[in-house]
Design a protein around this nucleic acid. Structure first.
Lengths: 194, 194
DNA sequence: AAAATGACCAAAATGCTCATTTGGTCATTT
DNA sequence: AAATGACCAAATGAGCATTTTGGTCATTTT
């Protein structure tokens, strides 16, 4: 019944971290939410941070699946990238709790949990990079360094979704996609000098 | 002698805020560094935050001057934007203390001093926007919204200078300029559909 | 026997008190 | 009239008592 418990605990922990953040989540709460004894958690996970890592890893996997599923060879690069970004938007909406966590962890978290959150960022950038590389191999885009391009794409996306909203008010999904298309994708698709 | 004192105080305060940050700076230290009595500060500035504002405003003015001076009509838009970004890089180097302040204020500062730091950001974006508008009027670039373009340019620049360094190591000035040129400017200069 | 559990403990977090520091004032000095 | 620093109320932080919490392990359950 160990594997069954693992899922229970992981789900309880995900709820707890979502509701209370990292610091606000106690192992007692996780145990209660998961409906298991506190000691049981420690038969599967080394400690709180390990549990946190596992929850994030689960989110990362979900996300990578979603990303993977929107690469459609028949689609144009631009369309694929659009799909990917829409998925990123949807993902953010579903897991907007995770974004709160990002903030909290950066402010109060330990070094370890900071690194854990960075892994999420790296995973997203990695997904984007993968798509860019695929496009690159088909000569659909030009870039000397798909990793940097993915990094910039991600940062620009985050700036539009979060920073812009803070300063000038929220932007619709449509507007964000359009802005990225005009200001970032265009160069990728047309600039042969990269 | 009031105007003379004002400069003394402003310089002392600039040093103090640079050395100790906002919280770490006491009015006694400012008075000592400026070589004036503490009470004197309050004949010119309403309070600590007002003084902080004044110091930032001075930095903003310096920065705007530098920016203004690198708009050369004979130069191409791309060159002008390059100059502006190089100046921004130089500016950051000289006032890198200010960047520390940004962090500190965001973490521990009052709402007021946060807004004060935002003004610096807005000033930089404003400078970029001004240059973009000038270029737009000469039909040298295309963009439906120079404010957003300036915002994105700034964010991308900051991401390259700070976030990228944190993740993958520092980028040289040359590399940063090149990346911005390839990934951002290109669309501005070529994408007539904006 | 193997898995699950919750009472238990050391350590960390929190609340609280009180001495010190600090932003700001104002009577005095220059 | 301008400048000043002793002075004050409020904010801060060190130090301590109390509570909470991550993690363990002897006991119970299956």
């Amino acid at each position: 019944m160990l594997e069954n418990k693992r899922k229970l605990i992981l789900d309880g922990a995900a709820s707890a971290f979502s509701m209370y953040g990292f610091k606000g989540t106690t192992m007692d709460k996780v145990a209660a939410l998961a409906g298991v004894g506190k000691g049981t958690i420690y038969t599967t996970f080394k400690n709180k941070e390990d549990l946190f890592d596992a929850v994030l890893q689960q989110i990362i996997s979900e996300m990578e699946n979603i990303f993977f599923n929107c690469i459609v060879p028949e689609q144009s690069v631009s369309e694929n990238l659009h799909s990917a970004l829409y998925e990123l938007l949807e993902f953010r909406k579903d897991h907007q709790v995770m974004m709160k966590l990002t903030n909290e962890v950066r402010m109060f978290g330990t070094d370890h949990s900071k690194r854990a959150m960075d892994k999420v960022e790296d995973a997203i950038i990695g997904c984007l990079e993968k798509q860019l590389i695929a496009a690159l191999e088909q000569d659909k885009i030009y870039t000397s360094n798909p990793r940097i391009a993915a990094f910039l794409l991600y940062k620009q996306y985050m700036a539009l979704v979060f920073d812009y909203e803070e300063k000038y008010g929220p932007l619709g999904k449509k507007a964000i996609a359009h802005l990225l298309d005009q200001h970032f994708m265009y160069a990728l698709v047309h600039n042969k000098e990269m």
